[in-house]
Design a binder for these strands. Sequence first.
DNA 1: CTACCATCCTGGTTGC
DNA 2: TGCAACCAGGATGGTA
Length: 284
Amino acid sequence: MPELPEVETVVRGLRPRLEGRRLRRVQQRRKDLRFPLPARFAERLTGRRVERIERRAKYILAHLDGGEALLAHLGMSGRMLLVEDPDEPLQAHDHIVLETDQGLQIRFNDTRRFGIMDLVAEAELQAHWLLKDLGPEPLSNAFNGPFLAERLAGRRTPIKAALLDQKIVAGLGNIYASEALFHAGLSPRRQAYTVQRGRAERLAWAIRDVLQRAIAAGGSSLRDYVQADGELGYFQHQWAVYDREGEPCPGCDCGADGGPLGGGGIRRLVQSNRATFYCPRRQR
DNA sequence: CTACCATCCTGGTTGC
DNA sequence: TGCAACCAGGATGGTA
């Protein structure tokens, strides 16, 4: 599930339990996730103190003493489970277990194994191949209407696809891309280069707003997804269009029959092999 | 550049 | 009920 708000929620859950703690035991239960884990992964983590945890786009960065950082990505199904009792049996797909000097375990569980972990020297972090091309943080001051307009200029790809491009904005995924376009009143099919000036301003604002509201709600929980602290986010109840095909969108009579634009409510379409949801009345 | 597709993997849901 | 097809929050890489 993890897009920016979910990763931010996980980071906030991990911080109080991990920052300042030393890793006394690390288990690596398979040699790879999406990519091979680095050489001597568990040994290099064991005994290290976690100085600070931060989020960059959908990545989790745990800065360690000794000059390295643990880089983690949750992929599609990755979860960080906090387990108080180290004797609790491991579950299927628990791939990595970090145990702190207080006896708390953080179990990285990832059924589909699209997740990533790597150990990177601090000095090489900026240039890391997974991080170096990322666009700006959408919640930072660097991200605004004029910036977005400039990045979209000349691009013939649909705006929905452009929003999923992590080089343009870092951290949006399939759910929040649909949601942001709805709130900005822009059709997902619109060519990216036509989003300029006022439209870019509205879209940048909608992106920030939807991400901030999702973070405030603790992210969106699907199926059994649980945050690091065991709580369930509830932003999925505030989705305006995502996964709501056929329902009327909020504050619009698009569900009603008739009218020049027809009815039937929220529509689903496939772009770049991904589902997009939108309201044909409110989004142009 | 861009569009499209396959790919990595598992498991839940849908439809016949 | 059984089973196969389809679908899923990400992201890359190859091809045309």
